[in-house]
Each structure stands twice: as structure tokens, then as C-alpha cells.
């Protein structure tokens, strides 16, 4: 067997493995494959170059009061804002605040909320939503996700092309095995002090804990802007721009 033949065979096998990994996916819609974050470092680390649309993603909140999951909710809201269409958000309480989502670029008019009474009802609602190709994304706030329901949700997402998010509330076991495509943890970090009194953009520690076909990784990012995009902190991305902005601000502060 020549070298080229061997390479061709390996390529064919890789394709097959990829096909197997991606599940059956017969009725897959022709939506774009993945939604990039728009940040090179992050998109490179993800096997599809972004968040895979027709899949289930898990998000943990790394803050000390995880039963509110505020950071995870904002993170998901920013991604949902960049998807196009109606988002179904399944929850138990009613503390999700519409105006905050509007600030992330997710117009609450695009949102349908389903207030369930139990975890089982949330799982059921999510599955119903993930089977409906007219939705852009389905978010469910759960405290735990077992293997069987996760497999059902993942299959439903693969068939319809709807992106699914599980927002973990409470002290969920972070290494519980399930069929989700990727597992993330987002937590707060102290933000850069401004040269003037006030508060800047929030800073997050964003960890990719597990990802099918990818390796764990972690980044420090600044929270979503009004279009739902994350940014790299100025001093990490472009030190000169940051220092320039800083000096301009301090000049302005001195003048004021």
C-alpha cells in the first residue's frame, strides 16, 4: 500500500468516525454548522469552529451562589442573541429579567417562557421545543441532567437543528456523564479597575470542561456587549490600544 493510499484510507476513516460521532442526524436541517464566538483563540479550540447549532450544550455557573446561575444565564443569553429566531426558555422560578436580556441583544419579544413545576416538566418541555424546527434555541434550567434524558435531548436537537442549552442551577455534579455535545463553566472574575469611579464591563472566566472532538480549555473574556458578543479584555488582546484608551481616560479625568 502506497503512502497516498494509506492517507486516503485514513481520511475516509476519519470522515466515517466523524459521521458516527455526530449521530445519525437524518432529518438535519441545512442550517450553518456552528456559531462562532468571533474570537480567534476560542473558535480555534472548538472542533467545529464555534458552538455547534444542532446539539445540546451544558453550562455550569462557577459563582458561589450557583442556584441563581446569573452568569450562566447571561452567557447563554448572549449566544441566543446571536441566533436568529424564537428562543424557548424553560424555568421554574420567574426571576429571569427581560430588560437585562434586551441589554445583551436578545430582544425579549423573541422569547417564550415556559414555567414548569418540576424538573421532569422542564425536561419534557425542552424535548418538545428541541423537536420543533421553528425555534432557534431552547434553554432549560435544571439541577441535574442524567444520561438518558440528555441523550433524548441531544437526539432531538440533532434532528431538528435547534440549539439546546442546559443551565445548571444548584450544586450540580460537574463530572456526571451525559450525552451533551459540550460542557462549559462560566464564573465571575474581578474586572479591571477604571481610572474613574464606576464599574466597567464584567469579566468572566470561561472554561470548556468537555467537548466532543475537542480538548478542555479556558479563557478570560469580557461579558457580552449589546449584540451578545464576548470580547477579550483589552490588556490581553491589544495592550497598546488599552494603554492608549487608559491614558485618554486619565487625561479626561484630569481635565474634568
Amino acid at each position: 500500500m502506497s503512502v497516498t493510499d494509506r492517507q486516503a484510507a485514513i481520511e475516509a476513516l476519519r470522515l466515517r468516525v466523524k459521521g458516527l460521532e455526530r449521530g445519525a442526524g437524518q432529518g438535519r436541517s441545512d442550517r450553518g454548522e456552528a456559531l462562532p464566538f468571533g474570537i480567534g483563540q476560542i473558535d480555534v479550540a472548538l472542533p467545529e469552529g464555534g458552538m455547534v447549532r444542532a446539539a445540546l450544550h451544558e453550562v455550569f455557573d462557577g459563582n458561589p451562589y450557583p442556584n441563581h446561575g446569573a452568569v450562566a444565564a447571561a452567557w447563554i443569553g448572549g449566544i441566543a442573541a446571536r441566533l436568529d429566531g424564537v428562543v424557548l426558555w424553560c424555568l421554574r422560578g420567574a426571576e429571569l429579567h427581560g430588560p437585562a436580556l434586551a441589554c445583551l441583544g436578545l430582544n425579549p419579544a423573541r422569547l417564550i417562557l415556559a414555567q414548569a413545576r418540576s424538573e421532569a416538566e422542564i425536561l419534557w418541555s425542552m424535548e418538545e421545543g428541541l423537536r420543533h424546527p421553528g425555534l432557534a434555541a431552547v434553554v432549560g434550567e435544571l439541577t441535574k441532567l442524567d444520561l438518558t434524558p440528555s441523550r433524548r435531548l441531544q437526539l432531538a436537537a440533532e434532528t431538528s437543528g435547534v440549539t439546546g442549552f442546559v443551565l445548571h442551577r444548584g450544586d450540580a455534579e460537574i463530572d456526571r456523564p451525559n450525552a451533551a455535545m459540550s460542557r462549559w463553566r462560566v464564573s465571575s472574575l474581578p474586572s479591571t479597575p477604571l481610572p474613574v469611579p464606576g464599574i466597567g464591563r464584567a469579566r468572566w472566566h470561561m472554561e470548556l470542561l468537555r467537548c466532543r472532538g475537542g480538548k478542555p480549555a479556558a479563557w478570560i473574556v469580557e461579558s457580552c456587549d449589546e449584540t451578545g458578543h464576548l470580547h477579550l479584555p483589552a490588556e490581553l488582546a491589544d495592550r497598546s490600544a488599552a494603554s492608549r484608551a487608559g491614558s485618554e481616560r486619565s487625561k479626561a479625568a484630569a481635565a474634568g
Binding site: 417564550i112 417562557l113 418538545e128 425555534l135
Partner: peptide, 26 residues
């Protein structure tokens, strides 16, 4: 295809199971 009216059956099923008024917009 993403016209919201296509969502009516989904919303009915959700409301049917979760209860009236538990499926809503803002």
C-alpha cells in the same frame, strides 16, 4: 419558515401540559 405562527402547536402542547398562563412572552 420561522414565522411564529408555526409555533402555535408547540405552544398549545406546552400550555396543555404545564397549565394555562405558564407559557408566556414578555
Amino acid at each position: 419558515e420561522k414565522e411564529p405562527s408555526g409555533l402555535a402547536p408547540l405552544i398549545d402542547r406546552l400550555a396543555n401540559r404545564l397549565g394555562e398562563g405558564r407559557v408566556y412572552g414578555l
